[in-house]
């Protein structure tokens, strides 16, 4: 369970694993923001609601991560709490509803890392293996 960073020649690779699809999305999001900030320093002061749809889990994960990157710029915020997240539907029509929590970026209190520009499709994978969901992706920094 959890996420880890992978070697990648130019950018940064991530791998996440969880028992549930929701848990996997939460881990992946934490890994994404863990690149940009020390997550322990991000307080849950602002909530943002999200509703996303996709025709399979892989596309839904791509949208989820891309949407988080967009939200960061739209509100100049970082997020560290992804606990409120539900995925409904079956494989051909999935819907994600989430409330992510975080706060305004503040270099005075946040130890900032590198800005992620976007999520790439290079080696993008999502699969269920031995009862666990796993994903891999590369972010463009």
């Amino acid at each position: 369970m959890g996420y880890r960073y992978l070697d990648h020649r130019a950018d940064m690779g991530l791998e996440a694993e969880n028992k549930t699809l929701e848990g996997l999305f939460q881990e992946a999001a934490a890994g994404l923001f863990g690149l940009m900030v020390n997550l322990d320093e991000v307080r849950a002061r602002k909530s943002r609601n999200m509703n996303l749809k996709a025709d399979n889990a892989e596309n839904l994960l791509y949208r989820w991560l891309s949407e988080l990157v967009s939200l960061r710029d739209l509100h100049n915020e970082l997020y560290g709490d992804f606990a409120e997240l539900v995925i409904n539907g079956d494989n051909s029509e999935l819907e994600l509803e989430a409330t992510v929590k975080g706060e305004k970026i503040n270099p005075e209190i946040h130890e900032l890392g590198t800005e992620v520009k976007g999520i790439t499709y290079q080696g993008f994978e999502l699969a269920k293996e031995n009862e666990n969901w796993r994903c891999r992706f590369v972010v463009d920094v």
């Binding site: 070697d7 990648h8 020649r9 940064m12």
Partner: peptide
Amino acid sequence: AGRAMSRKK
């Protein structure tokens, strides 16, 4: 130049 080493490394 292009990277020779991953960011993680």
